[in-house]
Design a protein around this nucleic acid. Structure first.
Lengths: 209, 209
DNA sequence: ACCTGAACACCGTTCAAGT
DNA sequence: ACCTGAACACCGTTCAAGT
């Protein structure tokens, strides 16, 4: 696991230039563990073994660190989607769409505070690499839509719009599930996985006659 | 814009028993003006002309006040939807669905921090009246779906599921628009209104052949 | 260039006390 | 019952200083 070169790189630990990534990593862990309210610059710094002021060497303010943690969140989500694509290689484009959809919602339920942070209001101009990461994530959804297109299964809509519609549905479902806002009389005894499958299928087939 | 009628129904001022509603109203205003970061219990109390401790007479903690402000947000959203229904009485069920959809997204874009608060993680058991309000809002969406049903235009899906699918799409689009996460190559020069119309229509007709 | 420590203005919350 | 004021532990941020 640890090669010599890795060790040498590790020699340049945060005391010599890698504090930035350490802070992002610790922030990510703390966000997963304790939620957004407990996430303070001072606690992150303390856990990194550094004074509460050191972060300002690498981030303009707390918001900049949060943006970096959000960016890391998009990387994690991207990994989850890639894994779903990997595990569904033999299946049909439609089944792969459902697999990716379940992966999206599963990520959302596993890392609710991350999702909230990722879709918080970070200005794209101020945090361009965050915007970039979110676009890369969307691109993974688009690739599945492209498979449907190549299989000749798409109705007459711009392919990018199809991808966006899938995205807004997945994201809306994720947020509403996390907020606990699906009434019991609708939810019944369906798991999130079943809800994703059924709702995405309804969208594929259309709501009206 | 901001209806205060319900909150003003009690003639007793906050010095005589209406501090609770005053705090909710001031909190609502401050959230609209300055965003969620600036929203502190102490500032709300100060603006209400009361000590920073008085709010604890009416709310267990800051979170409880936030939940009440979120609840007020659902009331405002409900008013916006009602207004859209009022203004589209002569139109077809389908056109009314689009009108309500535009109203939802318009509200989201006008009060982005409210929307975030409304869909934050407030436990339904701890804040039952908040959960109730959100269910009432969903019911307004359901009423339009019921019109489609009565007009015989619905495909073979549980009616509640149809309403939920509309809701997740509207909410996902709202969050993603507020987060500024639609890439320019997709957004092109379309306004939010046009995006809502087109995306909801795509969902009505179906994405696949 | 990178980090520390003191200081400042603010925050949510608790407690004792006042009416 | 409703509100106040002092106190506590925390926070983000700035500044001067140390290596």
């Amino acid at each position: 696991m640890l090669s010599v070169s890795t060790l040498e790189k590790d020699k340049q630990k945060y005391h010599h230039g890698d504090l930035r990534n350490t802070l992002i990593q610790i922030g990510t862990e703390m966000l997963i563990e304790s939620g957004a309210d407990e996430l303070s610059l001072r606690k992150i710094a303390q856990r990194a073994g550094v004074s509460h002021n050191a972060p300002y060497q690498h981030f303009a303010d707390k918001n900049a660190l949060l943006a970096a943690i959000a960016e890391e969140g998009f990387r994690l989500l991207g990994d989850a989607i890639d894994e779903a694509l990997q595990n569904s290689q033999t299946l049909s484009p439609h089944a792969r769409l459902l697999a990716v959809s379940r992966a999206y919602v599963a990520f959302a339920l596993q890392y609710p505070t991350h999702l909230q942070l990722m879709f918080g209001a970070f200005a794209s101009e101020t945090y361009p690499s965050l915007a970039n990461r979110s676009h890369q994530t969307l691109a993974k959804l688009m690739s599945v839509v492209a498979e449907l297109e190549q299989a000749g299964q798409l109705a007459e809509n711009p392919i990018y719009d199809v991808g966006m519609v899938v995205w807004i549905a997945l994201h809306g479902l994720s947020v509403i599930l996390n907020a606990g806002k699906i009434p019991d009389y609708i939810r019944q005894d369906r798991t999130p996985e079943i809800l994703v499958n059924q709702f995405i299928d309804m969208i594929c087939k259309g709501l009206l006659k």
